[in-house]
Design a protein around this nucleic acid. Structure first.
Lengths: 158, 158
DNA sequence: GACATTCATGACATAATCGTCATGATTCTT
DNA sequence: AAGAATCATGACGATTATGTCATGAATGTC
Protein backbone atom coordinates (compact mmCIF):
# COMPACT_ATOMS: atom_id res chain seq x y z
CA UNK A 1 0.00 0.00 0.00
CA UNK A 2 1.75 3.13 -1.20
CA UNK A 3 1.20 6.75 -1.94
CA UNK A 4 2.04 7.65 -5.52
CA UNK A 5 4.66 10.26 -6.28
CA UNK A 6 1.97 12.29 -7.95
CA UNK A 7 -0.01 12.47 -4.73
CA UNK A 8 2.99 13.60 -2.74
CA UNK A 9 4.24 16.25 -5.11
CA UNK A 10 0.88 17.39 -6.35
CA UNK A 11 -0.40 18.02 -2.86
CA UNK A 12 2.76 19.89 -1.95
CA UNK A 13 2.41 22.17 -4.93
CA UNK A 14 -1.16 22.89 -3.97
CA UNK A 15 -0.10 23.80 -0.44
CA UNK A 16 2.61 26.02 -1.79
CA UNK A 17 0.14 27.94 -3.92
CA UNK A 18 -2.20 28.18 -0.98
CA UNK A 19 0.58 29.66 1.11
CA UNK A 20 1.52 32.25 -1.45
CA UNK A 21 -1.91 33.17 -2.72
CA UNK A 22 -0.66 32.78 -6.24
CA UNK A 23 2.46 31.45 -7.90
CA UNK A 24 4.07 30.63 -11.23
CA UNK A 25 5.56 27.38 -12.38
CA UNK A 26 9.18 28.56 -11.99
CA UNK A 27 8.43 29.65 -8.44
CA UNK A 28 6.82 26.40 -7.37
CA UNK A 29 9.53 24.54 -9.15
CA UNK A 30 12.17 26.28 -7.06
CA UNK A 31 10.26 25.94 -3.81
CA UNK A 32 9.70 22.24 -4.20
CA UNK A 33 12.89 21.24 -5.93
CA UNK A 34 11.16 19.82 -9.00
CA UNK A 35 11.88 20.51 -12.65
CA UNK A 36 9.70 23.11 -14.28
CA UNK A 37 8.27 20.60 -16.71
CA UNK A 38 7.42 18.23 -13.96
CA UNK A 39 5.80 21.00 -11.97
CA UNK A 40 3.85 22.09 -15.02
CA UNK A 41 2.46 18.62 -15.48
CA UNK A 42 1.35 18.35 -11.87
CA UNK A 43 -0.29 21.77 -11.86
CA UNK A 44 -1.94 20.93 -15.12
CA UNK A 45 -3.60 17.94 -13.54
CA UNK A 46 -4.73 19.94 -10.55
CA UNK A 47 -6.16 22.52 -12.89
CA UNK A 48 -8.08 19.97 -14.94
CA UNK A 49 -9.47 18.59 -11.71
CA UNK A 50 -10.71 22.06 -10.81
CA UNK A 51 -8.53 22.74 -7.80
CA UNK A 52 -6.59 25.48 -9.53
CA UNK A 53 -7.22 28.29 -11.97
CA UNK A 54 -4.52 29.43 -14.33
CA UNK A 55 -3.72 32.60 -16.22
CA UNK A 56 -1.18 32.94 -18.98
CA UNK A 57 0.98 35.87 -19.82
CA UNK A 58 3.04 38.37 -17.96
CA UNK A 59 1.03 38.57 -14.80
CA UNK A 60 -0.07 34.98 -15.11
CA UNK A 61 0.28 32.04 -12.76
CA UNK A 62 -1.86 29.76 -10.67
CA UNK A 63 -4.24 30.36 -7.81
CA UNK A 64 -6.65 28.19 -5.89
CA UNK A 65 -9.96 27.72 -7.64
CA UNK A 66 -11.78 28.22 -4.34
CA UNK A 67 -11.16 28.96 -0.68
CA UNK A 68 -8.77 26.46 0.92
CA UNK A 69 -11.45 25.59 3.49
CA UNK A 70 -13.52 24.26 0.60
CA UNK A 71 -10.78 22.03 -0.76
CA UNK A 72 -11.00 18.62 0.87
CA UNK A 73 -7.72 16.76 0.96
CA UNK A 74 -9.44 13.47 0.27
CA UNK A 75 -10.71 14.79 -3.02
CA UNK A 76 -7.31 16.10 -3.98
CA UNK A 77 -5.71 12.75 -3.25
CA UNK A 78 -8.37 10.91 -5.21
CA UNK A 79 -7.77 13.19 -8.17
CA UNK A 80 -4.02 12.74 -8.03
CA UNK A 81 -3.74 9.07 -7.17
CA UNK A 82 -7.09 7.40 -7.44
CA UNK A 83 -8.89 5.63 -4.67
CA UNK A 84 -7.63 2.69 -2.68
CA UNK A 85 -10.61 0.56 -3.46
CA UNK A 86 -13.28 1.13 -6.08
CA UNK A 87 -15.68 -0.80 -8.26
CA UNK A 88 -13.12 -1.60 -10.91
CA UNK A 89 -10.78 -3.08 -8.39
CA UNK A 90 -12.24 -6.58 -8.49
CA UNK A 91 -12.26 -6.57 -12.27
CA UNK A 92 -8.61 -5.64 -12.44
CA UNK A 93 -7.69 -8.39 -10.00
CA UNK A 94 -9.90 -11.29 -10.89
CA UNK A 95 -7.02 -13.35 -12.29
CA UNK A 96 -7.96 -15.82 -14.97
CA UNK A 97 -11.39 -16.48 -13.55
CA UNK A 98 -14.05 -14.69 -15.52
CA UNK A 99 -16.30 -14.54 -12.52
CA UNK A 100 -13.98 -13.81 -9.67
CA UNK A 101 -13.88 -16.93 -7.54
CA UNK A 102 -15.11 -14.79 -4.69
CA UNK A 103 -18.04 -13.42 -6.56
CA UNK A 104 -20.30 -10.74 -5.20
CA UNK A 105 -18.43 -10.11 -2.04
CA UNK A 106 -15.24 -11.69 -0.81
CA UNK A 107 -13.26 -11.72 2.37
CA UNK A 108 -10.58 -9.48 0.94
CA UNK A 109 -13.03 -7.03 -0.54
CA UNK A 110 -14.53 -6.41 2.88
CA UNK A 111 -11.10 -5.74 4.27
CA UNK A 112 -10.26 -3.28 1.54
CA UNK A 113 -13.52 -1.47 2.14
CA UNK A 114 -12.76 -1.12 5.81
CA UNK A 115 -9.34 0.28 5.13
CA UNK A 116 -10.76 2.64 2.58
CA UNK A 117 -13.35 3.83 5.09
CA UNK A 118 -10.68 4.45 7.70
CA UNK A 119 -8.64 6.49 5.28
CA UNK A 120 -11.67 8.40 4.09
CA UNK A 121 -12.58 9.27 7.63
CA UNK A 122 -9.27 11.01 8.02
CA UNK A 123 -8.83 12.71 4.68
CA UNK A 124 -12.40 13.84 4.23
CA UNK A 125 -12.18 15.90 7.41
CA UNK A 126 -8.96 17.63 6.51
CA UNK A 127 -8.99 20.61 4.16
CA UNK A 128 -6.23 22.40 2.38
CA UNK A 129 -6.69 25.21 4.89
CA UNK A 130 -5.51 22.87 7.65
CA UNK A 131 -2.40 21.92 5.75
CA UNK A 132 -1.64 25.51 4.93
CA UNK A 133 -2.01 26.55 8.55
CA UNK A 134 0.24 23.71 9.54
CA UNK A 135 2.83 24.72 6.99
CA UNK A 136 2.74 28.32 8.17
CA UNK A 137 3.43 27.30 11.74
CA UNK A 138 6.39 25.26 10.70
CA UNK A 139 7.71 28.05 8.54
CA UNK A 140 7.67 30.11 11.72
CA UNK A 141 9.63 27.52 13.65
CA UNK A 142 12.33 27.03 11.07
CA UNK A 143 12.59 30.56 9.79
CA UNK A 144 15.71 32.44 10.89
CA UNK A 145 14.76 35.58 12.83
CA UNK A 146 16.44 38.96 12.75
CA UNK A 147 18.55 37.67 9.94
CA UNK A 148 20.33 35.57 12.52
CA UNK A 149 20.68 31.96 11.42
CA UNK A 150 21.14 30.77 14.97
CA UNK A 151 17.73 32.24 15.73
CA UNK A 152 18.09 32.67 19.45
CA UNK A 153 14.65 33.38 20.88
CA UNK A 154 14.86 37.06 21.80
CA UNK A 155 11.88 37.62 24.12
CA UNK A 156 10.73 39.84 21.32
CA UNK A 157 8.32 42.60 22.21
CA UNK A 158 7.21 43.24 18.64
CA UNK B 1 -2.96 5.58 -2.95
CA UNK B 2 -3.23 2.01 -4.13
CA UNK B 3 -2.93 -1.56 -3.00
CA UNK B 4 -0.32 -3.48 -4.93
CA UNK B 5 -1.23 -6.58 -6.86
CA UNK B 6 1.09 -8.51 -4.62
CA UNK B 7 -0.90 -7.51 -1.56
CA UNK B 8 -4.17 -8.53 -3.13
CA UNK B 9 -3.09 -11.89 -4.49
CA UNK B 10 -0.70 -12.75 -1.70
CA UNK B 11 -3.30 -12.22 0.97
CA UNK B 12 -5.83 -14.26 -0.97
CA UNK B 13 -3.44 -17.16 -1.23
CA UNK B 14 -2.82 -17.00 2.47
CA UNK B 15 -6.53 -17.11 3.18
CA UNK B 16 -6.93 -20.03 0.84
CA UNK B 17 -4.30 -22.00 2.69
CA UNK B 18 -5.87 -21.07 5.97
CA UNK B 19 -9.21 -22.37 4.73
CA UNK B 20 -7.82 -25.67 3.57
CA UNK B 21 -5.32 -26.30 6.32
CA UNK B 22 -2.72 -27.08 3.72
CA UNK B 23 -2.44 -26.77 -0.02
CA UNK B 24 -0.08 -27.13 -2.96
CA UNK B 25 0.83 -24.60 -5.59
CA UNK B 26 -1.32 -26.20 -8.30
CA UNK B 27 -4.30 -26.19 -5.95
CA UNK B 28 -3.98 -22.54 -4.97
CA UNK B 29 -3.29 -21.70 -8.56
CA UNK B 30 -6.58 -23.23 -9.60
CA UNK B 31 -8.55 -21.73 -6.73
CA UNK B 32 -7.31 -18.22 -7.35
CA UNK B 33 -7.04 -18.25 -11.12
CA UNK B 34 -3.33 -17.46 -11.19
CA UNK B 35 -0.55 -19.19 -13.07
CA UNK B 36 1.41 -21.75 -11.10
CA UNK B 37 4.59 -19.77 -11.45
CA UNK B 38 2.96 -16.63 -10.23
CA UNK B 39 1.46 -18.48 -7.30
CA UNK B 40 4.83 -20.00 -6.51
CA UNK B 41 6.43 -16.61 -6.35
CA UNK B 42 3.79 -15.21 -4.04
CA UNK B 43 3.92 -18.17 -1.70
CA UNK B 44 7.67 -18.00 -1.73
CA UNK B 45 7.53 -14.44 -0.44
CA UNK B 46 5.05 -15.37 2.27
CA UNK B 47 7.32 -18.20 3.28
CA UNK B 48 10.39 -16.03 3.50
CA UNK B 49 8.42 -13.62 5.63
CA UNK B 50 7.58 -16.48 7.97
CA UNK B 51 3.86 -16.66 7.42
CA UNK B 52 4.04 -20.06 5.74
CA UNK B 53 5.98 -23.28 6.08
CA UNK B 54 6.66 -25.41 3.05
CA UNK B 55 7.41 -29.08 2.45
CA UNK B 56 8.66 -30.51 -0.79
CA UNK B 57 7.98 -33.88 -2.27
CA UNK B 58 5.00 -36.09 -2.70
CA UNK B 59 3.06 -35.12 0.37
CA UNK B 60 4.43 -31.62 0.29
CA UNK B 61 2.72 -28.27 0.14
CA UNK B 62 2.20 -25.19 2.26
CA UNK B 63 0.66 -24.62 5.65
CA UNK B 64 0.40 -21.65 7.95
CA UNK B 65 3.50 -21.12 10.05
CA UNK B 66 1.30 -20.41 13.08
CA UNK B 67 -2.32 -20.26 14.17
CA UNK B 68 -4.36 -17.84 12.05
CA UNK B 69 -5.28 -15.93 15.20
CA UNK B 70 -1.60 -15.08 15.54
CA UNK B 71 -1.25 -13.76 12.01
CA UNK B 72 -2.00 -10.05 11.96
CA UNK B 73 -3.23 -8.81 8.61
CA UNK B 74 -1.29 -5.58 8.98
CA UNK B 75 1.95 -7.49 9.14
CA UNK B 76 1.08 -9.54 6.12
CA UNK B 77 0.28 -6.44 4.12
CA UNK B 78 3.48 -4.76 5.21
CA UNK B 79 5.45 -7.81 4.12
CA UNK B 80 3.73 -7.96 0.74
CA UNK B 81 3.47 -4.30 -0.11
CA UNK B 82 5.46 -2.22 2.32
CA UNK B 83 4.08 0.49 4.51
CA UNK B 84 2.27 3.61 3.42
CA UNK B 85 4.62 5.92 5.20
CA UNK B 86 8.02 5.13 6.68
CA UNK B 87 11.31 6.82 7.47
CA UNK B 88 12.68 6.46 3.97
CA UNK B 89 9.66 8.14 2.47
CA UNK B 90 10.96 11.67 2.79
CA UNK B 91 14.31 10.68 1.35
CA UNK B 92 12.70 9.15 -1.70
CA UNK B 93 10.57 12.23 -2.29
CA UNK B 94 12.81 15.14 -1.47
CA UNK B 95 13.07 16.26 -5.08
CA UNK B 96 16.26 18.03 -6.00
CA UNK B 97 16.67 19.60 -2.59
CA UNK B 98 19.32 17.85 -0.53
CA UNK B 99 17.62 18.89 2.67
CA UNK B 100 13.96 18.57 1.95
CA UNK B 101 12.56 22.09 1.86
CA UNK B 102 10.21 20.97 4.60
CA UNK B 103 12.95 19.65 6.83
CA UNK B 104 12.34 17.86 10.08
CA UNK B 105 8.61 17.77 9.84
CA UNK B 106 6.37 19.05 7.12
CA UNK B 107 2.69 19.58 6.59
CA UNK B 108 2.41 16.63 4.27
CA UNK B 109 4.40 14.34 6.48
CA UNK B 110 1.95 14.89 9.31
CA UNK B 111 -0.90 14.05 7.01
CA UNK B 112 0.73 10.84 5.85
CA UNK B 113 1.33 9.82 9.43
CA UNK B 114 -2.28 10.32 10.29
CA UNK B 115 -3.43 8.24 7.37
CA UNK B 116 -0.95 5.55 8.23
CA UNK B 117 -2.20 5.52 11.81
CA UNK B 118 -5.79 5.17 10.68
CA UNK B 119 -4.91 2.25 8.43
CA UNK B 120 -2.84 0.63 11.14
CA UNK B 121 -5.68 0.88 13.57
CA UNK B 122 -7.79 -1.23 11.25
CA UNK B 123 -5.33 -3.79 9.99
CA UNK B 124 -3.53 -4.40 13.26
CA UNK B 125 -6.77 -5.55 14.85
CA UNK B 126 -7.71 -7.97 12.12
CA UNK B 127 -6.14 -11.40 11.99
CA UNK B 128 -6.08 -14.03 9.33
CA UNK B 129 -8.56 -15.96 11.44
CA UNK B 130 -11.11 -13.20 10.89
CA UNK B 131 -10.66 -13.30 7.13
CA UNK B 132 -10.89 -17.07 7.09
CA UNK B 133 -14.07 -17.04 9.10
CA UNK B 134 -15.47 -14.45 6.76
CA UNK B 135 -14.53 -16.52 3.75
CA UNK B 136 -16.15 -19.61 5.24
CA UNK B 137 -19.43 -17.82 5.76
CA UNK B 138 -19.46 -16.64 2.19
CA UNK B 139 -18.58 -20.07 0.89
CA UNK B 140 -21.72 -21.22 2.69
CA UNK B 141 -23.86 -18.61 1.00
CA UNK B 142 -22.64 -19.22 -2.49
CA UNK B 143 -22.10 -22.95 -2.34
CA UNK B 144 -24.58 -25.00 -4.38
CA UNK B 145 -26.46 -27.40 -2.12
CA UNK B 146 -27.45 -31.01 -2.80
CA UNK B 147 -25.34 -30.91 -5.90
CA UNK B 148 -28.00 -28.70 -7.42
CA UNK B 149 -26.45 -25.73 -9.21
CA UNK B 150 -29.65 -23.76 -8.99
CA UNK B 151 -29.44 -24.19 -5.26
CA UNK B 152 -33.08 -23.69 -4.44
CA UNK B 153 -33.34 -23.45 -0.69
CA UNK B 154 -34.97 -26.75 0.22
CA UNK B 155 -35.97 -26.24 3.84
CA UNK B 156 -33.43 -28.96 4.38
CA UNK B 157 -33.79 -31.06 7.50
CA UNK B 158 -30.27 -32.47 7.22
C1' DG C 1 3.09 44.11 -33.87
C1' DA C 2 7.41 42.34 -31.83
C1' DC C 3 8.77 40.45 -27.69
C1' DA C 4 9.03 38.47 -23.12
C1' DT C 5 6.60 35.81 -19.92
C1' DT C 6 3.69 32.52 -18.85
C1' DC C 7 0.76 28.19 -19.27
C1' DA C 8 -0.46 23.62 -22.33
C1' DT C 9 0.35 19.30 -24.19
C1' DG C 10 1.79 15.20 -26.38
C1' DA C 11 5.87 12.34 -27.41
C1' DC C 12 9.60 10.21 -25.46
C1' DA C 13 13.12 7.90 -22.09
C1' DT C 14 13.64 5.76 -17.80
C1' DA C 15 12.50 3.11 -13.88
C1' DA C 16 9.49 0.21 -11.15
C1' DT C 17 6.15 -3.26 -10.91
C1' DC C 18 4.10 -7.36 -12.51
C1' DG C 19 3.87 -11.79 -14.34
C1' DT C 20 6.13 -15.59 -17.19
C1' DC C 21 9.43 -18.96 -18.06
C1' DA C 22 13.24 -22.23 -17.74
C1' DT C 23 15.72 -24.75 -14.78
C1' DG C 24 17.08 -26.86 -10.55
C1' DA C 25 16.54 -29.03 -5.83
C1' DT C 26 14.06 -31.89 -2.43
C1' DT C 27 11.06 -35.60 -0.91
C1' DC C 28 8.33 -39.60 -1.28
C1' DT C 29 6.93 -44.01 -3.65
C1' DT C 30 7.93 -48.15 -5.95
C1' DA D 1 17.76 -46.28 -8.32
C1' DA D 2 14.17 -44.36 -11.12
C1' DG D 3 10.37 -41.61 -11.38
C1' DA D 4 6.74 -38.51 -9.96
C1' DA D 5 5.31 -34.77 -7.34
C1' DT D 6 6.43 -30.91 -5.15
C1' DC D 7 8.86 -26.40 -3.87
C1' DA D 8 12.89 -22.71 -5.20
C1' DT D 9 14.86 -19.15 -7.78
C1' DG D 10 16.89 -16.07 -10.99
C1' DA D 11 16.45 -14.21 -15.68
C1' DC D 12 13.48 -12.26 -18.86
C1' DG D 13 9.66 -9.58 -21.21
C1' DA D 14 5.48 -6.78 -20.69
C1' DT D 15 3.10 -3.24 -18.55
C1' DT D 16 2.60 0.83 -15.91
C1' DA D 17 4.28 4.88 -13.44
C1' DT D 18 7.42 8.57 -13.50
C1' DG D 19 9.82 12.40 -15.17
C1' DT D 20 12.02 14.93 -19.28
C1' DC D 21 11.80 17.31 -23.45
C1' DA D 22 10.35 19.92 -27.49
C1' DT D 23 7.05 22.59 -29.17
C1' DG D 24 3.00 25.40 -29.26
C1' DA D 25 -0.54 28.84 -27.57
C1' DA D 26 -2.13 32.80 -24.77
C1' DT D 27 -1.43 37.26 -22.46
C1' DG D 28 0.51 41.52 -21.29
C1' DT D 29 4.28 45.31 -22.28
C1' DC D 30 6.58 48.41 -25.13
Amino acid sequence: MKFSAQEEYGLRCLIQIGLKGSATIPEISRDEGLSEHHTAKLLSILRKERFLNSMRGHIGGYRLARAPEKIVVGEVLAALGGRLYDEEFCERHSGLLSTCAHSGSCAVKNLWSEVQAAVDHVVSHITLADLIENAQKEAELYKPRNGNLLSIPVASGT
